[in-house]
């Protein structure tokens, strides 16, 4: 067995250890690299920045625990921004019941941090059955479709939601998702009701969403942990997203080296044959 063959047969556990080190070590040895802000992220930031305290942003946490690591930093950054700007938020989980358990505690925590009043500054709707029916129903009759919030209070009784009738009263819908839920928001909320849609999506989906962005169906896009990190930079509150970016850097380098080494081995051993 020559060198290249040995390299090809490398035990996978060695690879696992290398990638673990590439992720963990950067937390201890920081380079402090700056993060450039992409226009997709800036578009959402600018939009929220220009909202007034009477405007409402509707955030739908359409994700489950599997992609929690990518989307919760986005959720927290956007909520922070809205709270800081005094923009009102209504949070729900239209497409994913699992999202309730991820979004609710974080929202409560942030609301306490910013001293926001439930029902006045923010409302949590939770999940209800309906998916696309719910999205369409909201365009006709917001309160009638949801009836109650997560804590079973009638939406009529909450000062914030009592004023929301349909998408005209919502300045922006943000769908945070690890699936195609944001496309459903485009089809059922943007197409028929002209609701403004922004998406925070996992990196897996990000490359596929550019046609919607270019067509103006999305006003902006947060792509994966990078998007979250950019948003955190914009609101000057580095948190989970930014912390991960250096680990992300080195692990990417590791993966690229793996691909190069792997291919070298492949070509070398093929040449021999």
């Amino acid at each position: 067995m020559n060198f290249w063959e040995k390299l090809e047969k490398l035990d996978r556990r060695i690879i696992y250890i290398i990638i673990t080190l590439a992720v963990v070590l950067p937390f201890f040895f920081r380079m402090g690299l700056p993060i450039k802000i992409s226009p997709e992220t800036k578009a959402i930031y600018d939009y929220i920045q220009n909202l007034s305290p009477t405007d409402v942003v509707f955030i739908s946490g359409d994700y489950d625990p599997q992609v929690d690591a990518e989307l919760t930093p986005m959720f927290e950054a956007i909520v922070r921004h809205c709270f800081e700007r005094n923009v009102k938020i209504v949070v729900s989980n239209v497409y994913n019941p699992q999202g309730v358990g991820l979004v609710e505690p974080r929202l409560k925590k942030l609301a306490q941090e910013y001293k926001k009043v439930y029902g006045v500054d923010y409302v949590f709707l939770g999940w209800k059955y309906g998916y696309s029916l719910l999205i369409m129903g909201m365009g006709r009759d917001f309160k009638g479709t949801w009836q109650t919030d997560y804590y079973n209070t009638s939406l009529e009784d909450l000062p914030l939601t009592s004023k929301i009738n349909n998408y005209n009263d919502i300045a922006l819908v943000i769908s945070l998702t690890g699936s195609g839920a944001y496309v459903a928001w485009i089809y059922y909320a943007y197409v028929q009701f002209k609701a403004k849609i922004a998406a925070g999506i996992t990196a897996v989906m990000a490359a596929d969403s550019y046609p919607y962005l270019q067509a103006g169906q999305l006003i902006g896009l947060l792509g994966g942990l990078r998007g979250a990190a950019e948003y955190e930079q914009l609101i000057h509150h580095p948190s989970l997203g930014s912390a991960g970016m250096e680990a992300q850097s080195w692990s990417h380098i590791a993966i690229i080296l793996f691909i190069i080494l792997g291919n070298l081995g492949y070509f070398m051993s093929r040449k021999k044959k």
Binding site: K115, V117, V120, T153, D157
Partner: peptide
């Protein structure tokens, strides 16, 4: 008649 939520500070 109606419930009114309070802000709960830490």
């Amino acid at each position: 008649l109606s419930p009114l939520q309070l802000k709960t500070m830490t």
